[in-house]
Design a protein around this nucleic acid. Sequence first.
DNA 1: ATCTAATCGAGACGGTACGTCGAGTCTTCCC
DNA 2: GGGAAGACTCGACGTACCGTCTCGATTAGAT
Lengths: 214, 214, 214, 214
Amino acid sequence: MSVVESLSNSMSIEVKESCEETAQRGRGRPRDEVARTRILEAALEVLQEVGFANTTTDAIAERAGASKATIYRWWSNKAAVVIEALRKQVSRDTPFADTGDLVNDIHLQLQGFVEFLTGWRGRVFKAFIAAAQNDPAFAESFRTDWILPRREEAKEIFERHKERGALAKNVDLELLLDAMYGPIYFRLLAGHGRLDADFAKSVGDMTIRSLVTS
Amino acid sequence: MSVVESLSNSMSIEVKESCEETAQRGRGRPRDEVARTRILEAALEVLQEVGFANTTTDAIAERAGASKATIYRWWSNKAAVVIEALRKQVSRDTPFADTGDLVNDIHLQLQGFVEFLTGWRGRVFKAFIAAAQNDPAFAESFRTDWILPRREEAKEIFERHKERGALAKNVDLELLLDAMYGPIYFRLLAGHGRLDADFAKSVGDMTIRSLVTS
Amino acid sequence: MSVVESLSNSMSIEVKESCEETAQRGRGRPRDEVARTRILEAALEVLQEVGFANTTTDAIAERAGASKATIYRWWSNKAAVVIEALRKQVSRDTPFADTGDLVNDIHLQLQGFVEFLTGWRGRVFKAFIAAAQNDPAFAESFRTDWILPRREEAKEIFERHKERGALAKNVDLELLLDAMYGPIYFRLLAGHGRLDADFAKSVGDMTIRSLVTS
Amino acid sequence: MSVVESLSNSMSIEVKESCEETAQRGRGRPRDEVARTRILEAALEVLQEVGFANTTTDAIAERAGASKATIYRWWSNKAAVVIEALRKQVSRDTPFADTGDLVNDIHLQLQGFVEFLTGWRGRVFKAFIAAAQNDPAFAESFRTDWILPRREEAKEIFERHKERGALAKNVDLELLLDAMYGPIYFRLLAGHGRLDADFAKSVGDMTIRSLVTS
DNA sequence: ATCTAATCGAGACGGTACGTCGAGTCTTCCC
DNA sequence: GGGAAGACTCGACGTACCGTCTCGATTAGAT
């Protein structure tokens, strides 16, 4: 069983497909957008079923009813296909809780995130993070499109808690968010312990304790 | 089959056998500990030079002056060798701090870990985590040969702090460790913020605050 | 899976496709007949230089400028390649005589076979037979890829002699072939007597005598 | 599944074990003759069960309750052990038939030989012949100890038939014997057709036909 | 109504690494 | 010093996957 797959994806991945590209269409047969879609769907299915390491381009091609040549014509390598497939799936989860009560917000948010990770989206999300470790361009996208917007959303809410006095002004929000999410990411990726509602509760409690004393 | 090897954290080539090791020594030629050490060292060198993805068992074997068969006799696959090699080095270069002072221990440990992650070993470590997400066998090795032994090491020290009364008896050590390491893993993998001594200090402070109130 | 390939005894690199070959040509890149030829030639060269026991698939692949995968796509194992390579050469250098005269055909064929066995290919052939005794898979290849095709070739010619009336209809061709080749195999393997043109002549004479009276 | 095993047995095989060797016994523990016997018996058993190609020294050692070192101390390689083990088993079969009637003698002899080959001794005999192809020393022994004595025996009987006038004086007995045994050896080793009483009968008939007309 | 060029499915190809297996050697302890 | 146990080096095996390539068949815009 092969373990490594991330050879030379240091180069940027061509994913952008702007609509106006059809304008410059030359003479020949136009790109088959159906095939493209089938390939991405197939990639996601295979990925979910067997994991990244056991995902082969042959398997994707076969399931998509496409040929490997078609895959490699449009994506530079296996990782690029899978990553583009993942990108669409990991887009949205529940918005940050905003009940007006700090303790409640934290607990609800952690509960929701753990729920999101438990289930098939968790598997995909793990693959998503893994992919980001191997490809700088994808890592950038991971931060910009996923991590940062969600942190901004959370920080806005925490800012309101600060204004209400529920949260001390001098609390480092970056650190607070790391304290909340870090342990959950850790268990997700290292798998050394259960990742369930109880754990979410404990992490929330601990986070809150570290705040109250400050 | 994974190779559990939490017997001796001795840093050198000592063939010294502790009492319980003589028990399992039957007849026949004993395991060549020198070869074992050479293999781990070679793995580390290859890892450093060509990166995780380009590390091959043949290269390790050749550099170690050992045969592939010997590698596969003692480690279930390439991943296991590489993981153990790196973990050994960490245990050696960054043993869990044991100064007798809880606060100090936590800070020192986090400083050491962040330092470890800054540099080429950090890149390798990220590759490990990525690989673990993709391949169940690798994930198992990663947990068994890296995560769990390190945690055991830390928990023993915390247990002593509990006995001394520096730490409340009812503290959940698993949770404590997640609180310490989680934020660091998070920044390592998501890259949304700096991963330096200051951050380590902040995480340590926060962890300790959450303990004092409990 | 053994590769039956009794289609074209063409001695060169012709990619010419006969009528029934187009039938099995589906879509996709067609088999590279040049590579196939190169592999068989390389096998023969390696065989000659280092002997059967020291012939490796890697060596054949490298010399042929092919990949091992290609070899194993078309031949079930090393033995099959080597057997086919040698058999092809024999069919080419020593095609079954077809002069129209039965007596002549038999004598020429036995002369050619004895000549073949005298020299390096005789040594290789002995190694083949030895290997066939020890390994069922090899034995199967040896029968399918060597013995049977050669016998079919001969039987076709004998059938024509039957139609011309030179050979009685009730002659058992299997037995006839055993009578011709058996004594030669016997001396080759047991080495109890000379294996030369005189012997071939004598065996031919004796075989013919046994036919005339029948 | 490995096919080849005959690497470097071109060197002569040390088998001689004269009884007076015990006289020159030195200081240490004397050779364990029981172990030697066990090894040879084990070799024969393994050989019969799995064939030469699948016979491993480990398997022999394990079954014999011996160690590989002991095997290699007394035999130069795997072939040497197996050959010595075989040598004793293939020693005797039925003596050449001598009924006074030439036709009868030939048929009886061929029947007996085919019977001998059918059954477990046939398997061993095949391995015996195969071994002779790879080792000159063993080939010599095969000829001297097995082939030639039996041919002499047969020739004596045929000489008496000549004196009685049942056989023409000018018949080449060597050739006659090759005609009788060759086809049987051929089928035994190439396995392209049945090797049974019917075949023996046919070969006998054919041999006799070739004689009568001469 | 062709011609021409880009695209598609299929699948063979060179290459690289994998993990396994067997041969024959060596090292320890036991007798 | 022989023998059992078993770890070691060496080298070939056959497999798997990657990314490239070459076919014949499609599919439009250009001529």
